Amino acid sequence: MTRQLPLDLALSPRFGEQDFLESPCNAEALALVRLWPDWPRRMLLLTGPSGAGKSHLGAIWAARAGARIFQGRDMDAASPPLLAGEGALLLEDAENAPEKELFHLLNLFMESGAGLMLTAARAPDLWGVRTPDLLSRLRRMPQAQIAAPDEAFLHAILVKLFDDRQIRVDAATIAYLAARMERSLAACGELVCALDREALARGRAVTRAFAGEFLRAHPQFGGEDEEL
């Protein structure tokens, strides 16, 4: 069979509030985002695993607050006063920010009362923070956590990700994949991307039979699969 070479085109995620899928694992975090500007100290630390939807929730808040979005790893000595002058800030992956600069930034926002959201994969006690005063400030921030998704939510995420790629997949195939894949949103994204590329390369539709063949050939996405 002749294999086509699929173009590796990055798809821009849709980060509008109407595109966010609410579930029990993220309902509390979404409710807190929607409470803006009535946040204690006008700050929020949002934690959750990779691909859990932190950036999407952050983008929803940034649109509501008119906030600038900045990456923690990009912070340097000049960043805190510049970012504090923005009025509101979403600092993504805050655990990757240098401690001295992050400490300065938190102090500036606490003094000004401007809106600040931090996102991170884990709670501050797991960052390896070596500055006691910084850890104390992070612990005192109002916090929200996105939990691991249940199978029903994985169904919804798989449907959305296939829809983003304009791929129609029936409910039986979605259920088949959700029951066998790693239970994380990051795994959903990786699986849908890999299935899309393989289907394009082989000129096949994403069906239950195709999904079974794929999982048997790529056990890292779903482990052992029974015969169909």
Rank of each mutant, 00 (worst) to 15 (best):
M1C: 14
L5F: 14
A10Q: 11
A10M: 12
P13H: 09
R14K: 13
R14Q: 13
F15Q: 15
D19P: 06
E22L: 12
S23R: 04
N26H: 04
E28S: 11
A31I: 04
A31P: 03
V33W: 04
W36H: 03
P40H: 07
M43W: 08
M43T: 09
M43I: 12
L44Y: 01
G48C: 02
P49I: 13
S50F: 09
G51T: 00
K54F: 02
L57R: 00
I60C: 04
A62D: 06
A63G: 09
R64S: 14
A65F: 01
R68G: 10
I69G: 07
G72E: 09
D76L: 10
S79T: 00
G87V: 06
G87H: 02
G87W: 03
E92M: 05
D93Q: 13
D93A: 03
A94I: 03
N96I: 14
L102A: 04
L102S: 05
F103A: 08
N107F: 12
L108C: 10
L108G: 06
M110L: 10
E111L: 13
G113T: 06
A114L: 07
L116G: 01
L116N: 01
T119E: 00
A120Y: 01
A121N: 15
L126Q: 12
W127E: 05
G128Y: 05
G128K: 03
V129Q: 09
T131D: 10
P132W: 13
D133L: 04
R137L: 09
R137T: 03
L138F: 04
L138M: 08
Q145Y: 14
D150W: 12
D150A: 03
E151M: 15
H155T: 09
L158V: 00
L158H: 11
L161F: 14
D163W: 13
V169E: 00
D170Q: 07
A172K: 15
A172H: 03
I174G: 02
A175Y: 10
A175W: 13
L185A: 15
G189P: 11
E190I: 06
D196W: 11
D196Q: 11
R197S: 09
R197Y: 11
A199M: 05
R202Y: 12
G203M: 04
R204F: 06
A209C: 14
F210R: 02
F221Q: 07
G223D: 06
E224I: 14
L228N: 15
L228I: 11
